[in-house]
Nucleic acid binder design. Structure first.
Lengths: 239, 239
DNA sequence: CGCGCAATTGAGTCGACTCAACGTTGGTGG
DNA sequence: CCACCAACGTTGAGTCGACTCAATTGCGCG
C-alpha cells in the first residue's frame, strides 16, 4: 500500500527493513476523496499528515479576488502535508485533482520517529526539502522563463517524478488536469493557457489528449524547458 | 553572536538552555563576504551550513540566457543553506547582497543533533519548512497578484521578518538591494521594476531612499499585498 | 571635476488579458 | 436511441501590461 512512498524515499537513500516496517506500521488507511474535494483546508490544524497512495492532488491558495494559484502538484507517494507536522497550521489548502486514496500518519507517531529513528526522521525531513527545491524551480520558471518553457518544465518534472513511482508507460502518463487547472499552476488565464499548450504541440514536443500526455521529443522538451533534474535529488547516498 | 538565530527559532517554540548551548557550541565563526560575492555556489556540495550573522544574502538561479531569478532573500539569523545538510548538492547559488558575516555549522554536528536532541532537530527542520512556506507565498504573488501587490507583499514580509530579529527602527529598515536586484526577485525588467516602485510611492504607502525603506501606511500596504503573516508561523507552541 | 553606477523617463513592440462566441464530447433522461 | 446539457477546449478581436531600446538625470567617490 505504501510502495510508492518507499520508491519515493529510496530514490534518495537506502532504507533499512526496520524503517520500512515503521512506515508501514504508522500509516493507516485513511479516506478516499473524489476529484475536487478538499483533502486539507487552509488554516486547519490537522493532527496527522496525509500520504497520497493513489491519484493526483494540488496545494493551492486563493486570493481575495477569487483567483487560485496552485503551488504544488502531488502524485502517488507524496506526503501532501508532511510540513503540517511542525508548521501546525496549514498555510494553504490541498485539493484532490482526481479520485484520491490517502493514508494517514499521526503526528505523535512522526514525533516518535524523530526521537527514536534519526535516519528515518532525516529522510522525512529530506522529503520536505525536495518539495522546497521544487518550489524554487517553479519560482525560477515563473519569473524568468517564457510560458511555453515553463509548461515544458512542468511536464519534464512530472515525467521524471511519475517514472520514479512507475506511473509512466512508454513516453506517456495520465494527468487529470483540465486546462483551467493547469492555468492555475502557471498563473495564466485559461485562454492563454490553451495557446501555450498549442505552441508545445505545434513544435512537435508533446501530445496531450484525453488527460494523457505523451512526450514526443524528450530532448527537445528538455531543451525548451532548460530542465536539469538535479533539484530532485535523485541520487542514492547517505543522508 | 548567534543571537539572531535564537530570536529566529524562538518565534516558533521555546528552546532549553541546553539547546541554546548546543547551537553556540557547533556554530563557529566563518568568513566575511563582500557584497556580490558568492557565499555558496550552485552545484557545490558543502560539508557545512552557513548561518547569516549579519547582512543580506539571496538564493538565486541563472538561466541559459543569463537572466537571474532570486528565490529567497536572507537576513540576519537565517540559515542560507541548511537544506544542503540533507540535499547534499546545492540546487542554487547564494550571493551576498551586502557585506555579510557568516557562522558555520558542520554537517556531522547537525547529524549529531538529529541523533541526540530530537526537539532541537525538529526546530531546525521547522526552520527549513518556514522557508518552504515563504516560497509558496512567493509563488502565489508571482502567479496571481499584480506586480505592485507583489512588491508590497515582499516589503510586508521583510518588515515582519526584520522586526523579529530587531533590524527595524520605527517604520524603517535598511535594504541594500538595487532596483535591478529587486527586479530579479519579482521576475521583472529593471525598467518596469522602477515603475512599480514609483506606483507604491505615488500611493503614499512607502518611501525608499538611500537603501532605506520606510512604511508610511502599514494598513494600506497590507491591504495592497493581501498580506497574511500566518505562513511565517510566528506563534510559540510545542513543535 | 568627472567617471561610473543607479535611477528615471520616453517610445514603440509584443505578450498576456478580457470578453465573446463557437466546437466537441461524454453523460443523462425522455 | 436520440436530444439535450454541461464542462471543457478552441478561436477571434481589442486592450493593457510588461518588454526592449535608448537617452537622460542624480549621486558618491577618486
Amino acid at each position: 500500500m505504501i510502495e510508492s512512498l518507499l520508491l519515493n524515499l529510496q530514490r534518495h537513500d537506502v532504507l533499512t527493513d526496520e524503517e520500512r516496517e515503521t512506515l508501514k506500521a504508522i500509516l493507516h488507511r485513511g479516506r478516499r476523496f473524489s476529484a475536487a474535494e478538499d483533502i486539507v483546508s487552509e488554516g486547519s490544524r490537522p493532527g496527522y499528515s496525509s500520504l497520497l497512495i493513489d491519484g493526483f492532488a494540488a496545494r493551492y491558495k486563493l486570493t481575495a479576488e477569487g483567483t487560485r494559484q496552485i503551488t504544488a502538484i502531488h502524485i502517488a507517494g507524496d506526503f501532501v502535508d508532511l510540513h503540517a507536522f511542525l508548521l501546525k497550521t496549514m498555510d494553504h489548502g490541498v485539493i484532490a485533482l482526481s479520485n484520491c486514496q490517502i493514508a494517514l500518519a499521526e503526528h505523535p507517531d512522526l514525533k516518535l520517529i524523530t526521537e527514536r529513528q534519526p535516519h528515518l526522521a532525516r529522510m522525512l525531513w529530506l522529503d520536505t526539502l525536495v518539495h522546497g527545491s521544487i518550489h524554487r524551480a517553479w519560482i525560477v520558471a515563473m519569473g524568468r522563463r517564457s510560458k511555453v518553457s515553463h509548461l515544458a518544465h512542468i511536464i519534464c518534472e512530472l515525467y521524471v517524478r511519475l517514472t520514479a513511482v512507475r506511473r509512466t508507460h512508454e513516453r506517456s502518463f495520465y494527468l487529470p488536469l483540465s486546462q483551467g487547472e493547469m492555468a492555475d499552476v502557471l498563473g495564466l488565464s485559461l485562454v492563454h493557457m490553451n495557446r501555450v499548450i498549442q505552441a508545445l504541440r505545434r513544435e512537435g514536443l508533446i501530445s496531450w489528449i484525453n488527460q494523457t500526455i505523451t512526450v514526443l521529443d524528450w530532448e527537445g522538451l528538455v531543451e525548451m524547458a532548460e530542465f536539469d533534474p538535479t533539484y530532485l535529488s535523485l541520487r542514492v547516498e547517505p543522508r
